[in-house]
Simulated scan of single mutants.
Amino acid sequence: MKIRKCLSLILISAMAISLSACGGSSKNNGSPAGDKADTQSTASGNSGGADGGSSGRAVTLDLVTGSTGTSWYSYGATFAEVLPRALPSGSMINAAAEGGATSNPIQVSNGTYQLGIGYNLSDKWAFGGESLYTEPSDNLRGIAGYLDTFYYIAVVRTDAGWTDLADVAANHIPINISVLPAGNMGNIVASMIFEYYGMTFDDIIAWGGKVEYADWGTSVENIKDGRTDFICHNITQGHAAVTELASTVDMTFIQFPQDMIDTFVDEKGFSPETLPANCFKGQDTDIRTFGVTSTLFCSTELPDDVAYGIARALCENVEDIRAGHTALQRFTAESACDPGGMGIPLHPGAEQYYKEAGLLE
């Protein structure tokens, strides 16, 4: 699938930032970034799925997650341990400490990776060629959804002297913000939030403020050092970067107005969410917001028996999945096949497992 040059440059830029965040490492276990994994199986059709693929040949699958410090990076380690349990003996999952919500669907669609973690919303955009995607990646298929809940939050240093974005926009207050690089889902949604208030990143600069484009780790350091005051992004409960930031700097969690939440839910496709109180130091009340959920997805190239085995491994090891990260506590076998949690069609191999397990009609 060819993507127009402008989109490619955006996605490459986003991936380059992710690579720098993890020390330039391309893949775990030494697997070259551009190599396709061996997904061939001696079992035909779905025959390997019912017995976990034991009659098939071992497979090695590359899973694109997110950079170090992200929840998805932690998920990758969990999936690397759990997923081979229902695949042929000797199978391996290589979790890559790179990628992101906007680039992962493209990399799975074009075969660079066989598996990816994504958001239901950005997967939907990629599948249909919507939003920043200029052409559809309609070979994407879901394996499991509703892995977690991601909440969009905005936090500002308490000593910054402001806590209201509407006041910033109305009075042209010069603020110093950290935002993820262009092409990243966090950057796109932060732009949408600023647009709601009637301002842009360029306006911030014009009013004497500062906009620093950086990955999560650098953004945390920028705020800790006082270089910037504010960041707006999606997080999970137990998010490592926000936990570190809130534990070392006095931060104020901003409550979005209900009208804004309703707009993002009704018009932009997000889900209404509430971040429970006391998830982070200084966050002593519930935060009403909007959000997305993470998915595990593949392409139509993944054999049916392999997709079957992955779905089976997830649903038969729910407690081990949940133990991998605080945010994965949401995951259940019953919700894994809910189409709302994936945003894209279900892979037929995974669908067969869910039907046989009585989870899908």
Rank of each mutant, 00 (worst) to 15 (best):
101 A>T: 14
57 R>F: 01
80 A>N: 10
59 V>K: 15
102 T>C: 13
108 V>M: 14
100 G>I: 02
68 T>P: 00
65 T>L: 02
86 A>W: 06
80 A>H: 06
66 G>W: 00
61 L>K: 03
93 I>L: 08
98 E>C: 07
95 A>Y: 12
70 T>G: 09
35 D>L: 10
92 M>S: 12
39 T>I: 15
91 S>W: 05
45 G>L: 14
101 A>D: 08
58 A>Y: 04
108 V>K: 14
46 N>E: 05
39 T>S: 13
74 S>L: 08
64 V>S: 02
108 V>Q: 13
58 A>Q: 11
46 N>C: 14
71 S>E: 06
94 N>D: 02
77 A>M: 12
48 G>M: 08
97 A>K: 07
99 G>E: 00
85 R>T: 13
77 A>G: 15
84 P>D: 07
39 T>W: 06
37 A>R: 11
49 G>D: 10
104 N>R: 13
103 S>T: 10
110 N>M: 11
35 D>M: 09
53 G>N: 02
66 G>Y: 01
109 S>H: 12
42 T>P: 00
55 S>P: 01
54 S>H: 07
68 T>W: 02
48 G>Y: 01
89 S>Y: 00
84 P>S: 12
106 I>S: 09
38 D>G: 05
93 I>A: 11
82 V>S: 12
42 T>W: 01
87 L>I: 04
83 L>W: 00
85 R>Y: 07
103 S>N: 07
53 G>K: 08
43 A>E: 12
52 G>S: 12
37 A>E: 10
91 S>I: 01
46 N>Q: 09
60 T>Q: 14
84 P>K: 14
75 Y>F: 15
87 L>P: 07
106 I>V: 11
80 A>E: 14
98 E>L: 07
88 P>G: 07
104 N>W: 01
64 V>N: 07
50 A>N: 05
55 S>F: 02
91 S>G: 08
41 S>K: 03
47 S>M: 10
88 P>L: 03
80 A>V: 10
86 A>L: 00
59 V>W: 08
97 A>T: 06
62 D>N: 14
44 S>K: 10
110 N>D: 10
45 G>Q: 03
91 S>Y: 03
90 G>C: 03
50 A>K: 13
35 D>C: 03
90 G>T: 13
83 L>P: 02
56 G>M: 08
69 G>E: 03
57 R>H: 11
50 A>P: 00
107 Q>H: 08
100 G>K: 04
38 D>H: 09
68 T>V: 15
61 L>P: 06
88 P>D: 11
89 S>L: 02
88 P>R: 03
65 T>F: 00
44 S>D: 05
66 G>C: 03
61 L>M: 15
70 T>V: 01
97 A>P: 15
47 S>P: 00
39 T>Y: 03
67 S>K: 06
110 N>F: 02
73 Y>H: 13
51 D>A: 06
41 S>E: 10
80 A>Y: 04
84 P>F: 04
90 G>W: 02
51 D>Y: 01
46 N>K: 13
67 S>G: 07
